[in-house]
Amino acid sequence: MAEHHSNDGRIAHAHAPSYGINIMIWLILISLTVLTVAIAGIDLGRLTLVAALLIAAIKSAFVINYFMHIKFEDLLFKVFLWLVLLVLLIILVLTAFDVFYR
């Protein structure tokens, strides 16, 4: 990490930008969309929502990690993101307790 390198900055961008991986991710996302619509057609009762949300969570993990590049960012970005998700989860769970046991 010496200050004097001028052209090494480019190399430091280790995760070389590539088209292929993103097209792969897109194909996975489209497949998951088709899957979630197909599953919605089957009556799974209460599990329908769980399945739909599970697929949505997997899809968002792909979007956040690859499209939004979090996988390749500094640890600080990941820590912040997990903190925000944790806050959301806490709000959701506490509200759920109120709603379900009223």
């Binding site: 919605a40 739909a52 697929i55 949505a56 939004m68």
Partner: peptide, 22 residues
């Protein structure tokens, strides 16, 4: 781009919650 992906991200949840409720 990050902003645009966020818009996509939110729709990923809106779609099943409103449309796939059968």
């Amino acid at each position: 781009g990050l902003y645009w992906h966020l818009v996509d991200l939110i729709w990923i949840f809106l779609f099943p919650l409103f449309y796939l409720l059968h």
